[in-house]
Amino acid sequence: MLTEVTATRYVTPLREGGSLPGLVEADDLGLYVMKFAGAGQGRKTLVAEVVCGRLARRLGLRVPGLVSVALDPVIGLGEPDEEVQQLLKSSGGLNLGMEYLSGAIGYDPLAYTVTSEEAGRVVWFDALVNNVDRSWRNPNLLVWHGELWLIDHGASMIWHHNWPTAPTAAGRSYDAGDHVLAPFAPDIAAAAADLAPLVTEELLAEITADVPDVWLSGEPGFDSPDAVRRAYAGTLLPRAATIHEHIVQAPSAAPAPARRGPGWRTGDTTHQGATA
């Protein structure tokens, strides 16, 4: 299960996201980007963050650590912003926290390059979970300590908004032509060979077990949280085996010009990011 912390202070809203996440301090003295159970996108956004975030980490991709955050709505009483105050009041109980990467900067493909191998692994993973929110318009990637980090997976696994369609999800294609890493010639075949064998029934059972019951209870068509967990695993497992065959790469994803290597265009790969 996710480690549970308690929110002790609401620091500031982060208005980049549509769900209005906020930076909070917790009783473990950590800072977390919190996504709220009471936000308009609902609890399925939190489920997607957990399933995708845990899966990405187990596959060797860099994602912020996740915790569940217990929130007492009283924290919102002193918040001057009415929208934020209402969000805090409607999100009492468990919410999701992501480790705050202090000093990280937003990814810019014109400033930071990646290898075809890393690009392939990210694209393959995004195809697996059907993440359509990694375009050049909204990369949802950070550079922290000179390395690429994946964030914001709440819009993934769209089939969980309509479970009757889930059995056909394994064969659905994934259009990677608009992916922010498409220009770096993603090596999809190598990624599939390395990562697909890691996605097992046992691994998916472990990952879905991390989703709190309260975010799964009462799902229409299911009689228990465990039944919902099995539905997530039952959709991702067959998709992992064949998704590399259904990734559509546009001509823009052709091999990129030779570069000195991954990292900043200046060749500096030890950049620590902007100061907080």
Rank of each mutant, 00 (worst) to 15 (best):
W149L: 12
D72E: 05
G234Y: 01
L55Q: 03
Y112H: 11
G22S: 15
K89A: 15
V47R: 07
N130Y: 08
C52Q: 05
A189F: 04
W215R: 10
T6S: 15
V123A: 08
H271Q: 12
I105M: 13
M1R: 12
R229I: 03
E25M: 14
G234S: 07
A70L: 11
P186F: 06
G221Q: 11
Y112S: 04
V67N: 05
R259E: 14
G221D: 00
D108M: 02
A48Y: 07
T115A: 05
G263T: 07
L31K: 14
V129P: 00
L204P: 02
D187C: 06
H145S: 04
L66N: 04
T165P: 02
R172W: 13
Y10Q: 10
R239C: 01
S135L: 08
A37Q: 04
V24A: 10
F36L: 12
H160E: 04
P255W: 09
H271I: 14
V129Y: 04
M1Q: 13
G171E: 13
N95E: 09
V199R: 00
A256E: 09
R239Q: 03
D133L: 00
G106E: 13
G22W: 09
E83L: 12
E82P: 04
D178C: 05
V132E: 14
S135H: 06
A205D: 08
L236Y: 01
D223F: 02
Q272M: 13
G17H: 11
P251D: 12
G234P: 03
P21S: 07
V5R: 12
D213F: 06
H153V: 00
A185Y: 13
E16W: 08
V33A: 05
D126M: 03
Q272V: 10
D152W: 01
P251F: 08
Y100N: 10
W215D: 05
E83R: 14
A104L: 10
A104R: 09
S217M: 06
W163L: 09
T8E: 15
D175Y: 13
W136H: 13
V11N: 11
G234E: 02
W149D: 03
S116P: 11
H145P: 01
E25N: 12
W264A: 12
A169I: 04
Q85G: 07
L110F: 15
V47D: 06
H161V: 01
S173D: 10
V67P: 09
G120Y: 01
P164L: 06
A192L: 09
R9F: 13
A196E: 05
P164D: 07
L101W: 14
T275P: 02
W136M: 09
L46K: 00
Q86S: 15
G273E: 07
T113I: 08
L61R: 01
H161P: 03
F222H: 04
W264H: 15
A196T: 10
G103L: 05
V211S: 01
G263L: 08
N162G: 04
A127G: 15
A274P: 05
E83C: 05
